[in-house]
């Protein structure tokens, strides 16, 4: 078991594993572009994509091209970015809070976003308003959590978690109140469906705004990924190792919050991913964030795109993705836990 090289994880060298996972993401993405009400053969998918940069003769119907570029591609991009973003935020938060049970929603971002979306559905009912409100309310909830944690002043990390629970409960209660008073035929189902998550509304325009936000957060977390190990050993240890813990904590919280607020604003609340993908990543490469974070980005992206493809093709109408992420993910996770023995 403890032979040469990395002895935890599944025993594949991290570099090789990342190449395999990138290939897997490529295959899943191609399948996602093929499937739907209009089936497009894989060769045609690649031809249509290549035609944008290479001089290829158009032998396909123009509708295929618009389906691919205006519907499936933005949705694929949303799946990749939201899946990768929520997963890397979850992994970074688990390191920061030294707790493998933490998800990116721990500081109240989804509870805040939920309330924002519910308000927007009740009073404006435009998609743009829902996205803007959920993003702003998500950020506001995390700001409240951080402000509340400062009031108590002691052991900051623990107070952040507790403050997150307090703020989350408050916002969730407000959302429940809105659901209770909402019109049960129109607004209430809209709120409920939004809370269950969907990538259905992701358009090219949305991705142009939200994409860079999520991408920036992911890149910054990747750049500081080794330092997250230091925080994971405890604040005092990190400080003894010369880390400016307050600044590093702030960077992680800002990145993870922007990623999740931006994700939630286009996809609604997709649970489970940010909690479990980091665990699957640890089963694959071990806990060193230097390898864990890139792996989690690839696995999270593949997973959400795969699940979203099932969500929109399995039955006639679309299944809310928040339901499927857990329904598909729970058995996979149970199986992986049984297969490899993690060291905790």
């Amino acid at each position: 078991m403890h032979a040469a090289g990395r002895s935890i994880g599944i025993g594949i060298a991290p570099g090789k594993l990342m190449v395999l996972l990138a290939l897997l993401l490529g295959v899943i993405a191609t399948v996602a572009l093929m499937l739907g009400q209009l089936q497009i053969p894989p060769a045609t998918v690649i031809e249509i994509l290549a035609s944008r940069v290479l001089p290829i003769e158009r032998t396909w119907e123009p509708t295929l091209e618009s389906v691919l570029f205006d519907v499936r591609l933005p949705r694929l991009l949303a799946g990749v970015l939201v899946g990768a973003g929520l997963s890397i935020s979850g992994a970074a938060f688990q390191g920061l809070f030294r707790n493998p049970l933490v998800s990116p929603h721990i500081l109240g971002v989804s509870a805040g976003a939920g309330l924002g979306a519910a308000l927007a559905i009740l009073f404006f009912s435009s998609i743009l308003a829902i996205q803007a409100f959920s993003f702003i309310f998500g950020l506001a909830a995390v700001l409240m959590t951080c402000g509340l944690a400062r009031v108590y002043r002691t052991t900051p990390v623990l107070m952040l978690v507790l403050s997150g629970i307090i703020v989350g409960a408050l916002f969730s209660a407000c959302t429940s109140l809105l659901k209770y008073i909402a019109d049960p035929l129109n607004n209430m189902p809209s709120i409920v469906f939004w809370l269950l998550g969907s990538l259905n509304n992701a358009s090219n325009k949305d991705m142009a705004v939200v994409g860079p936000v999520i991408l920036t957060g992911i890149v910054i977390l990747l750049l500081i990924r080794w330092r997250i190990n230091l925080l994971a050993m405890g604040e005092e240890d990190a400080r003894a190792l010369g880390v400016d813990t307050r600044r590093l904590t702030a960077i992680i919280i800002v990145c993870a919050t922007l990623i999740s607020a931006a994700s939630v604003s286009i996809s609604g609340i997709i649970g489970w991913i940010g909690l479990v993908i980091p665990h699957i990543g640890r089963l694959l490469v071990g806990p060193d964030n230097k390898y864990l974070l890139p792996v989690v980005v690839l696995v999270g992206a593949s997973y959400l795109v795969a699940v979203d493809t099932i969500a929109r093709t399995a039955i006639e109408s679309e299944i809310p993705i928040g339901i499927l992420t857990a329904m598909v993910g729970a058995p996979i996770f149970a199986y992986l836990l049984k297969k490899s023995r993690p060291g905790w």
């Binding site: 390191g95 230091l230 994971a232 190792l241 640890r282």
Partner: peptide, 16 residues
């Protein structure tokens, strides 16, 4: 440690 870091990964943290 909340996570099962390898001993050499912990020791190399001293290089921070």
């Amino acid at each position: 440690s909340a996570f099962p870091f390898l001993v050499r990964d912990i020791v190399v943290m001293g290089r921070a």
